[in-house]
């Protein structure tokens, strides 16, 4: 079964905007409400829109299962490597060594109500990105597996 051309065209138009919104939520996780998990869920909803708008065989040509598995594993690996990087400097696991350090994501933050500055947070934005990548991979893999279990493929 295939959705009508209205649904397919709407999905094609909306997909880039959903991606942009999800990346915005992931990147601004340390400044505004949101973070890696929420932004990853938004990105995965865009993938779900594509999966439902097209036939199973067509959509799995775009959203490949092996690619999603690689993305998921890579996100978790990036998260662990980011956490391990503090141990190279002699600090403990998960120590936020880049915060207020003057380097990347290292601007100083004053206490109290401040304006949004993207260049703060130390390791937190990198971890947000890693978790966002992992969540979009995991949810897409789950959706693809559940879809492949249906006998008459939608």
């Amino acid at each position: 079964m295939q959705m009508s051309s209205i649904v397919r065209t709407t999905a094609d138009i909306l997909f880039p905007f959903i991606l942009i919104y999800g990346f915005y939520i992931v990147i601004h996780g340390h400044l505004t409400p949101g973070g890696g998990f929420q932004g990853g869920a938004v990105l995965a909803s865009g993938v779900l829109l594509l999966l439902f708008a097209y036939r199973y065989n067509e959509s799995t040509r775009i959203v490949k299962k092996t690619v999603m598995k690689t993305i998921e594993s890579g996100g978790l690996l990036l998260f662990i490597i980011t956490a391990l990087s503090a141990m190279l400097l002699g600090a403990g696991f998960f120590f936020n060594w880049a915060a207020s350090g003057g380097m990347i994501f290292g601007d100083l933050v004053a206490f109290g109500s401040t304006a949004a500055n993207l260049n703060t947070g130390g390791l937190i934005p990198i971890m947000n990105l890693a978790v966002g990548i992992e969540v979009v991979g995991a949810i897409s893999v789950i959706l693809l597996a559940l879809l492949s279990g249906i006998k008459e493929k939608i």
Binding site: P33, G112, S113
Partner: peptide
């Protein structure tokens, strides 16, 4: 208010 300091009211 929500625990977010970006342009937060007092």
């Amino acid at each position: 208010i929500a625990p977010i300091f970006t342009n937060a009211p007092d």
